[in-house]
């Protein structure tokens, strides 16, 4: 316990380093504000696409595949999530770079004659994130879906509801906590991630974590970096406040 209280205090010290002057500087710099809005854009887009991709996957895993293989398929679907952060971003670079697999493939099909410039853009960052978070959100939604009691559907069907209505009135609302938890965790990780935008997004249109790292590695401006980190945390706290009432952490 002593150790833990110690870390909490250590953490508090960081906050004690900022003063208002830096704060004003941050909010009056277009460049830094841009990085914040870029970050928000990428993160929100990522989260939405990931949910759209993950929901059907979780649904299929929960209800459509035979029980015997359910566990192993779920494991397969989320395994790369736990593994090799840097390498995963790098391997996407192999796929989408100028001479990468995807361009060569599309070219051989005759769909394009010039390689598409996909790497080193915000789109590439979003792709890398979506890949990552689809797995995570699948996991949280799945955990919620399997807890729904089949008797609810039976009751609804007995009362005359069709399959579509059952899905929208029963399955979807009951799995919402899983969606929200997954989305929240994705948001937190995505907005604070440096690696994916740095490797896939390149140096243009930088995101907030990249801007923070620049402050540290180039300028060694810790107070400024701290101000930006605090801003980042503030965003996370706001998002937490919005999503908190839908979240039941212990169910995941």
């Amino acid at each position: 316990m002593l150790g833990i209280s110690f870390w909490q205090r250590v953490y508090g010290r960081l906050i004690a380093t900022w003063d208002l002057a830096n704060y004003i500087k941050f909010f009056s710099s277009d460049y830094l504000i841009d990085s914040l809005t870029n970050s928000l854009e990428v993160t929100v887009l990522t989260t939405v696409i990931s949910i759209i991709l993950a929901y059907p996957l979780a649904y299929i895993l929960a209800f459509k595949v035979p029980k015997r293989v359910q566990g192993i398929l779920l494991l397969l679907s989320v395994m790369p999530f736990w593994t090799a952060y840097v390498v995963r971003s790098y391997s996407w670079l192999l796929v989408i770079s100028e001479n990468g697999v995807l361009n060569v493939f599309l070219n051989s099909l005759g769909l394009i004659d010039q390689p598409l410039e996909m790497a080193y853009s915000q789109g590439a960052t979003v792709l890398g994130f979506v890949h990552f978070f689809t797995m995570l959100i699948t996991l949280t939604i799945y955990a919620n879906l399997v807890q729904i009691k089949p008797s609810y559907w039976k009751a609804a069907a007995d009362l005359g509801a069709g399959p579509v209505r059952i899905f929208f009135r029963i399955t979807l609302p009951l799995s919402l906590p899983g969606v929200v938890v997954g989305a929240f965790i994705s948001f937190v990780i995505a907005i604070g991630d440096y690696i994916t935008p740095q490797i896939l997004g390149g140096g243009t249109d930088i995101l907030l974590p990249q801007a923070i790292m620049l402050q540290i590695s180039r300028a060694a401006n810790f107070p400024m970096a701290s101000v930006m980190a605090v801003t980042l945390m503030a965003v996370v706290i706001i998002v937490y406040a919005i999503s908190a009432k839908h979240m039941k952490m212990e169910r995941v």
């Binding site: 937190v188 907005i191 604070g192 991630d193 980190a229």
Partner: peptide, 14 residues
């Protein structure tokens, strides 16, 4: 719920 980057900076400073 705190980004690794923020924890990293906090640790670096402290």
């Amino acid at each position: 719920t705190v980004s690794y980057l923020i924890i990293g900076i906090g640790l670096l400073v402290s």
